[in-house]
Every structure is written in C-alpha cells, then in structure tokens.
C-alpha cells in the first residue's frame, strides 16, 4: 500500500539545517498495523505528516497504492486524503463549536455525501464506538476517552483504507488508553491499515510490526508475533 524510498525532509532556520528524515525507506502492506517508535525529535511525526499528505517531502519517492504522490498539489492531496486517510491525534483536535454528531459528520460533508446517508453512517459509527448517547454534546462536555472515541469515529466514518494515529493514547489514562487500542485493533482486523506513532511500548505491542527511528532513519524493525 505504501512504499517510500530515500525519503528526505529538512527543517531550515536561518542558521541551522535539521535533517528530520534521512533517506528513509519503508514499505507498509495493506491490512498491516505498524507502530512507529523512537525518541523525541527522531522524525516520527514528520513521517506521519508526510504519509498523511499534510506535508511535502524534500526528496525521495512516496508511492501510495502504486501512485507517486510526493509532489501532488494541494488540491490533489486534499482529494486523496479525504477519500483514503483518517487521522487520530493525541490532542483529539475536535472542533469545539460542533457537536459530537457534527464533528463526525464533517468528513462526509467534505466528500459530498448526501444528508440522509450522512445521518445513517454517523449513527452507525457512533453506535459502534459506543458514544451514540452523547451525539448532541459538545467536545468540552466529554471525558478524554470519550473525546478520543469521537475522534476515531470521525477518522473512520469515511471508511478510509489507512488510519494515521499520532500518539492516540498520549492524553489518556491507562484504562481509556486500552479501550482506544482495542478499537484500533478491531478496525485493523476489519481490514484497515493502521500506522501509529507512539512512545508507549505497551501500545506498540498491539501492532504487527514496530519501526524504530533514530535521527531520521530506520534503525530496526521488530516483527511482533
């Protein structure tokens, strides 16, 4: 599904050039659950942003389902993103002005799904995430675990092929964290590819494979049994 070759990314300030990704190679197959680990500043989030087409690489190739997407323009990237990729963030990133229902509905609006279908799909996914009873609440009225479940619901409502999760349990206590990991595992079992950045060895154990990054390149890959 994803093949990146010699991927490079630099951050420049006036005096310093920092190499975030240094000729990184990585292949991820459809249906995999991959955890990306490494110390702060090793390029995990940068990698995730590039994989999610939120950021451009400075060099190398990025094949998504066989298509070179490294140099897609903004419009094409937005298009690819909204149909194929769901995001889950550490800080949830729900929109405060929208209710649970409306937050989850948003990706469907952007992909042009009609109103009746939207209602049906949002209700479906909210039920699955066991958050249906909170559909008319605003994010600030929910606990952290509930907020992250809403965020996951939002990420999957469009039935994306790929979910990118950036420390999804980072702001949660362990029991809520475990619940989130169970949800992700379920999604993966239903066929969604998942790439997750995490600091937690515990969370990483839910994945099939751990990619460890150091200074912008892969140091080791552990295959989980």
């Amino acid at each position: 599904m994803i093949k990146i070759t010699n991927l490079e990314k630099f951050y420049r300030t006036e005096e310093v050039e920092t190499v975030a990704l240094n000729k990184l190679n990585l292949e991820i197959n459809t249906g995999e659950f991959v955890a990306i680990m490494g110390p702060s500043g090793c390029g995990k989030s940068t990698l995730l942003n590039i994989l999610g087409l939120l950021d451009d690489p400075d060099g190398g190739s990025y094949l998504f389902n066989g298509t070179e997407v490294a140099h897609f323009n903004e419009r094409k990237r937005a298009d690819l993103r909204k149909h194929n990729i769901g995001f889950v963030f550490q800080s949830f990133n729900l929109i405060d002005e929208l209710t649970v229902f409306e937050n989850v509905e948003l990706p469907l609006i952007y992909t042009g799904v009609n109103s009746a279908d939207r209602k049906q799909r949002v209700e479906e996914v909210l039920t699955k995430m066991q958050i249906m009873h909170r559909r008319n609440h605003y994010p600030q009225q929910l606990s952290g675990g509930q907020q992250q479940r809403v965020a996951i619901a939002r990420a999957v409502v469009n039935k994306p092929k790929l979910i990118l999760a950036d420390e999804p349990t980072g702001n949660l206590d362990s029991s809520n964290g475990n619940e989130v990991m169970e949800l992700l595992t379920d999604l993966n079992e239903q066929g969604t590819t998942i790439i997750m950045v995490t600091h937690s060895e515990h969370d990483a154990r839910y994945s099939h494979r751990i990619v460890r990054l150091l200074d912008g390149h892969t140091v080791v890959e552990n295959i989980m049994m």
Binding site: G52, L54, E74, R75, A78, D79, R81, K82, H83, F87, N93, L94, I95, D96, E97, L106, P107, Y110, T111, R154
Partner: peptide
C-alpha cells in the same frame, strides 16, 4: 487556526 488545520486534514478544500 487549529480548526482550520483540522478541517484541512479532514479534506476541506480551499474554497470550502
């Protein structure tokens, strides 16, 4: 700004 960012990741186009 954050709202704009979230909307963009969810696929909002510039004109939208």
């Amino acid at each position: 700004a954050r709202e704009v960012g979230v909307r963009k990741t969810l696929g909002a186009g510039k004109w939208q």
